[in-house]
Design a protein around this nucleic acid. Structure first.
Length: 561
RNA sequence: GCGCCCGUGGCUCAACGGAUAGAGCAACAGACUACGGAUCUGUAGGUUGGGGGUUCGAAUCCCUCCGGGCGCACCA
């Protein structure tokens, strides 16, 4: 537990004891009338270091004025060993706690001891959680929506892992269904065309140049023998080759983006193993399907969805939805007790129906959490960049990485909450200036590294925290920085609870700002006997926290820029 | 028409139902002959889209209206 968390827990239990005694004295049932209360950092510094709202919450059940309740509780508090030096009842009935600033002395040793693990907690208790994200169709390259999903999903996975969950990152490969058949027909046509046959492209085919190149590569590697093969066999071989190429390209892009998956799950295996058929049968056996106009429907409306959904088409072919239900059932059957999907907001209509199907199958639909992310708008030169799949012209992840680099891209995708539309300003992301928040954070880290380079050049090294006097760090800028460093474990917890990586990005920016202020106001090297050492420890710990934060959002912490 | 998300200073966005709504950018005025000026200090800028409600307390929850985005396929 972090220093701040320990202090808060100590205060909370003191408050609880005092409140129970007070409630009992008023003749109320303590077990029933003590509400959930918070002990948290107030926004205003004048309101102390921590504050509790318990008296406000107790006003109604106790039928007393909140300030009177607060005063009663405050008078009964036993705060020995909690660092509290002053308690005040304030405002409508908050109880504010002012801490002896000596508590700050505990923070840096805590950070130093934990190192790379500073900020880590065991919220998850080893619970198996799966995060499925990107899952782009293997029919093309990754676009901006996929990229945001990749950045978001990877960060969520990292944060959950850091907070004690056993995380599996998974990519669902949509290698079945109509679009894949279209892909097969398209590449077959390109293949035959390359060999001089008059082969027409399918109506809804993939007309991009990439398939022509794929066909050429296939011919170069495997020759023209398939022209004489049975069409089904020809398409099967060409499709396998094409899918592998596409997937390899996707993997390469993601790797360049710093995203790695543990599991690549193929949709086609669900069909091949009969899992899709079985799940349809089970839904039917449980009485949740009906036939209409030759198709088999799942009665999703029973489970709160706004409409029912087709499982098996009139043609007898199961839908993507049917496969998706089988896939999600498979996730739980593999032992995940918590499943998180990162989807584009354009799929929101799907959420209630998949959850409904899981409920229909007897699973806890609440164990599936869907993070919907709003769409990305690219801006360049102040104008939105048009993205169109129809014309095949859209900005790919590879192009983005080439334009702005991995760190800026990862930071930009993650710095806004998922449910906010993301305006991605290409010019800004590329700019190496104060307008760009990525460099602001990274610059702080590079400055820290620079201090230690100079220290090393003169033969010095950073002393352990235990050997310096932390009480020397009492300038306002120093206190503010230490105070914020102490917040990191809390910030990570909030980010984990809310599946909100943007909290980490904003936190890192905040820490960088406090560091820059400190750096400009005070010398580190040459600060004087004792003080230099203490500040070195502070700077070192700041570097640790920045690195840990940046690691959670997949952004590098450079030694030099 | 129905559903989901959003609406907060000029711009882009924060804010577990908490006290006086915060940052960054842009604007304006300034800064160390020393550790990296991709930095710092300060000033100005707001009836949180409008209205109603719940609450001791609402940017946050509910209703309604307005505006924007995205869905509403036997596509995925």
């Amino acid at each position: 537990m972090s220093v701040l968390a320990r202090i808060r827990a100590g205060i909370a239990s003191a408050v609880r004891r005092a409140a129970l005694a007070a409630v009992e004295a008023w003749g109320l049932d303590p077990a029933a009338s003590l509400p959930e209360f918070t002990v948290e950092v107030p926004r205003e510094k004048e309101h102390g270091d921590l504050a509790t709202n318990l008296a406000l919450l107790l006003a109604r059940p106790a039928r007393r004025h909140p300030r009177e309740i607060a005063a009663t509780i405050a008078a009964r508090l036993d705060l020995r060993g909690t660092w509290v030096k002053e308690v005040k009842v304030a405002g409508p009935g908050f109880i504010n706690f002012h801490l002896d600033e000596g508590w700050l002395d505990l923070v840096l040793p805590d950070i130093e001891e934990a190192g790379d693990a500073y900020g880590a907690t065991n919220l998850g208790g080893g619970k198996k959680v799966q995060v499925e994200f990107v899952s782009a169709n293997p029919t093309g390259l990754l676009h901006m929506g996929n990229a945001r999903g990749a950045a978001l999903g990877d960060s969520i996975a990292a944060i959950l892992s850091f907070t004690g969950f056993d995380v599996t990152r998974e990519f669902y490969i949509n290698d079945a269904g109509q679009q894949v058949e279209n892909l097969a027909l398209s590449v077959e046509a390109r293949y035959l065309q390359e060999l001089g046959y008059a082969a027409p492209m399918p109506e809804n085919g993939y007309f991009g140049e990439d398939l022509i190149a794929t066909a050429r590569r296939f011919i170069a590697a495997h020759g023209a023998g398939l022209a004489a093969a049975a069409p089904e066999e020809r398409r099967r071989v060409l499709l396998a080759y094409t899918l592998k190429e596409k997937l390899d390209a996707i993997k390469a892009s993601l790797e360049a983006f710093g995203v790695a998956f543990d599991v690549w799950f193929s949709e086609s295996t669900l069909h091949a193993e009969g899992a899709v058929r079985r799940v349809i049968e089970e839904l039917t056996a449980r009485g949740h399907t009906y036939e209409k106009e030759g198709a088999l429907w799942f009665r999703a409306t029973t489970f709160g969805a706004d409409k029912d959904e087709v499982l098996v088409r009139q043609s007898g072919v199961p839908t993507y939805f049917a496969a998706d239900v089988a896939y999600h059932k498979n996730k739980f059957d593999r032992g995940f007790t918590r499943v998180i999907d990162i989807w584009g907001a354009d799929h929101h209509g799907h959420v209630a129906r998949v959850k409904g199907a899981l409920a229909a199958l007897g699973y806890d639909a609440g164990a599936l959490e869907v993070v919907l992310m709003q769409l990305v708008r690219l801006y360049q030169g102040g104008e939105p960049v048009r993205m169109s799949k129809r014309t095949g012209r859209y900005v790919t992840l590879d192009e983005l990485l080439e334009e702005v680099g991995r760190d800026a891209a990862r930071y930009f995708f993650v710095m806004r909450s998922a449910d906010s539309h993301l305006d991605f300003d290409l010019d800004l992301a590329r700019r190496r200036s104060n307008e760009n928040p990525v460099y602001y954070v990274q610059y702080a880290h590079a400055r820290i590294a620079s201090i230690f380079r100079q220290l090393a050049a003169r033969g010095g090294k950073c002393p352990p925290a235990a050997e310096v006097d932390p009480g020397l760090l009492r300038e306002p800028a120093e206190r503010a920085l230490i105070r914020r460093l102490a917040d990191f474990p809390d910030e990570v917890l909030i980010a984990a609870l809310e599946l909100a990586p943007h909290r980490i990005a904003l936190y890192a920016h905040d820490v960088a700002g406090l560091f820059h202020s400190f750096y400009n106001a005070y010398r580190v090297l040459g600060a004087g006997e004792g003080l230099e050492e203490a500040r070195l420890v502070l700077v070192h710990c700041t570097g640790t926290v920045l690195r840990n934060a940046l690691r959670l959002i997949g952004v590098g912490a450079p030694e030099r820029m």
